[in-house]
Design a protein around this nucleic acid. Structure first.
Lengths: 340, 340
DNA sequence: CTGAAAGCGCTTACAG
DNA sequence: CTGAAAGCGCTTACAG
């Protein structure tokens, strides 16, 4: 059916190993020979067989992106990560395999790894004490991470700069004149508390608020629409009522905004709202649209791919720790407080 | 490093081919032998090498999901499709490879296909006259489709039932008493017009409106927030003004809703809104939340995976054409018209 | 600068 | 019911 390396060799009048070397560039080839090989390949419309290449010991050209199964909804638009990773992988000559299994199904991940299918992996949504890390390390599979573990030593990772995320939000509001802010946060599971995205944004918010002389009321809501409605109730009951809200809880924010509007409070007249880590579409659905501070998911994913490929190809050995700056997009939901 | 099939054979005291057959089940094995082989595999923590399996002619265990590069934003939440496909593939024992290249980069797809890496492929977001179809067909790679082409003959596909999508929306509004509806549609490119999702929803809307005695005003907006603002202007200028809106344009809908709210019209008091193919989060961001009719992306993708795997494993040969019914979720944005 | 050959770890006729 | 062996299409020392 499809042409093999031998067909190419025959047509070019060289040995098959010469064809291999012409492709890989791992030994010097005379210009004339290379010429003929290339012509033969073009003529036969030759594509090397991926399995044979992988079996024979070269890189298979596949990397895996692993995300924990059943832990959806953490990032605004996961597809942004996946799409960006796929594109960058292709640009660098790799295929992107999607892996997903329950976060503590260590065996499942283990057998994926030992199948030998992939040259390396990217672990998404890394938690503080992620059980995937030892599994992949032990198998000696090169990997990079999206997210930051507690023990960062020797690990390659790229993460959103959650400190900056919190700081940008507070600075924006304080700059507008707000000095009393409601933080619509999320309930986090034990292992993550203190070191996951929420914990880090939380600390940054507290620190920035303190520095700016802003009073901060933290409310941990369920990640659900009703959770947001309850939070709106808690917010409304506060006296004095904060003049602004920072939200790091997509789903609850929806319920919160609905309830606030139904209560007759206006945004940003009565409350300014800044949403963290929310997608553009969701931000544009409210009236007025929401001011946001979000990490650039595409850039984060593409960087993680670059690191992994650099590592696989021996161009880099330094276990980089990269924090990517989030971006503030001012829309209509934030304004100076209207107060005597 | 990792155990090979020979290691297992040695430990179990059988030949290596017996181990293979024990795994594949392609010939009868005595219970005792199977027993010993399984024990040996467990003891050695054996995982078959994927490349060797693929090279030797068996199925490689990888399927590809191909989506057109740079054509984002058509579906509400693409990640739903990708995640569901990944999960179902894993359940059925396959890896999911993500492929994406520009829709008319036929060569790129062609070389992917001829690499021999995947057992089959799923083509996402199929257009009426999709150029990928002949490429994959010619390579004799088994494939199934998400979306419906014009020429359906011999093709395996699963698609949202866009006729039902339009019908459900009109029936819901007509049932509430609306008889004059604004259709916020999208501008479509030439090759898709008339046969893509938009064209199909469009026809269904027209037909249902006619049957129900509903007057329908179609407006094709740019797929952008400003496009939606402009549409809101066109809507407001209508006399008499329709009492309801059906939107099949996520991004424009955001601008539309913002503008309508800013104009002082209330939802659903002055206008009812039904959004087609929009994600739950976006639907919950507005006040009140939006009534939606959306295709179940996860189910569609999982079904496409099932069909492909069934086809690969020879369980099915009938080129099924499946249309999946969308679901109406009534939220606060639709109500009877308030009119004398 | 190039060729002949071993080997990667499987699957699958071919024998028995 | 099981074994010995060819072969899948590459890569990479080993020779020259």
């Amino acid at each position: 059916m499809a042409a093999t390396r031998d067909d190419v060799a025959r047509l070019a009048g060289v040995s098959s190993s010469t064809v291999s070397y012409a492709i890989s560039g791992r030994r010097t080839i005379s210009a004339a020979t290379r010429q003929r090989v290339e012509q033969a390949m073009a003529e036969l419309d030759y594509t090397p067989n991926a399995f044979a290449r992988g079996l024979a010991g070269a890189r298979g050209g596949i990397i895996a992106l692993h995300y924990p199964y059943g832990r959806r909804g953490v990032t605004a638009s996961e597809f942004e990560y996946v799409a960006a990773a796929t594109d960058r992988a292709r640009e660098r000559g790799y295929h992107l395999l999607l892996w997903s299994n329950p976060i503590d199904d260590v065996e499942g991940l283990g057998s994926l790894v030992s199948e030998g299918l992939v040259d390396g992996a990217i672990l998404m949504e890394l938690t503080a004490d992620d059980r995937r890390v030892p599994v992949v390390s032990r198998a000696r599979l090169p990997f990079t991470n999206i997210g930051r573990p507690d023990d960062v030593d020797g690990l390659w990772f790229v993460d959103a700069d959650y400190d900056a995320l919190g700081r940008l939000a507070i600075d924006h509001l304080a700059g507008l004149g707000h000095d009393h802010v409601f933080f619509l946060s999320q309930s986090v599971r034990q292992p993550e508390r203190g070191s996951g995205p929420v914990g880090r944004a939380d600390s940054a918010l507290v620190a920035s608020a303190c520095q700016r002389g802003v009073r901060l009321e933290t409310h941990r809501a369920e990640n659900s629409v009703p959770g947001g409605r309850a939070a709106a109730g808690a917010f409304a009951a506060l006296a004095p009522r904060p003049t602004a809200v920072v939200a790091f809880n997509e789903t609850a924010l929806a319920g919160f905004v609905q309830t606030v509007a139904a209560t007759g409070l206006s945004i940003p007249g009565d409350v300014s709202v800044v949403a963290l880590s929310i997608g553009d579409l969701a931000a544009e659905m409210t009236s007025p649209p929401l001011t946001t501070v979000s990490p650039p998911g595409g850039e984060i994913a593409a960087t993680a791919v670059d690191h992994l490929v650099d590592r696989l190809e021996g161009r880099r050995h330094d276990a980089p720790h990269v924090l990517v700056a989030p971006q503030l997009v001012v829309r209509g939901s934030s304004a100076p407080p209207t107060r005597p």
